[in-house]
Design a protein around this nucleic acid. Sequence first.
DNA 1: TTATAAAACTTTAAGCTTGAAATAATTTCC
DNA 2: GGAAATTATTTCAAGCTTAAAGTTTTATAA
Lengths: 154, 154
Amino acid sequence: MVAGPTSTGPGKERLRLWIRLLRASRTIEAELRERLKKEFDTTLPRFDVMAALYRVPEGMLMSDLSRFLLVSNGNVTGIVDRLVSEGLVTRARRNGDRRTSMVRLTEEGAKSFATIAAVHEGWVGELLGGVSDDEARRLAGMLKSFRSNWEGRE
Amino acid sequence: MVAGPTSTGPGKERLRLWIRLLRASRTIEAELRERLKKEFDTTLPRFDVMAALYRVPEGMLMSDLSRFLLVSNGNVTGIVDRLVSEGLVTRARRNGDRRTSMVRLTEEGAKSFATIAAVHEGWVGELLGGVSDDEARRLAGMLKSFRSNWEGRE
DNA sequence: TTATAAAACTTTAAGCTTGAAATAATTTCC
DNA sequence: GGAAATTATTTCAAGCTTAAAGTTTTATAA
């Protein structure tokens, strides 16, 4: 998914775009992953889950998390398990529907996330430093329209 | 890495861009992974390795592959192991430097890749269909400049 | 009601991924 | 020449990821 087009023709331009998109996000992702590990001894998936939960103090269901993060159910189970064992997150059985459990950041989890998120935002600013403000806005706009199209599509 | 900004301020615009970039590439990647599995019973990492090798009939060293694909050495070892066991790739010890081994597509591997790549290119065209030709070119240009900046940076 | 379907989640097996440690071959340099 | 550093690769442990199968609980509907 990271190699070049293997042909010429009409699909070539979009294939090139896709490869660049993927290389850019992999490069940035790898750098962020490494820094999260080195500086905070955590991982991207844990960070993602905590970021999702941070926005919603009342908590999220497992299925909400997996939908929001674009990953499978079983995946979220494992990550939340580890966050619970680290005391950063709680899983609370609900009275209403006993199949579901509400996942919330603990106080320690919220505090920890806030610290990391502030540094993380600085890293992203640094890593995307080569993109001008104007470009950043236009790129973000294009990607937003891609997303809307996509969501209409399914 | 997929949740929204947690603050306002100067870094906010680039953080938003990064989150959209990541969501877009994850969405497309997930779709391509699923189709590769369903239609060709293969995986993205295998496809990536084969794409890299397809461009270079004389083959690549393990370390070339890992550098090119932006993944770790140990990772490539496992993927190549599996491709070898499937008869799609060969690993040849070199006379000159016996630490290295040259990895090449087999005839079957090249044939298989060509088939998959053609379909894959069509998928990408379809999945990025919402992006106009003009946008595709501009986006690709921006991402290229990002990449150059990055590479100068390290 | 009460079988049947659907929903929410967990478990499992297989594969991907990394960073660190281990091996083996080559180079460097005294 | 031979110790020491470097390079290329593999192995390993831990964690991430998915799809599919399994469990428990709730909803549907004949």
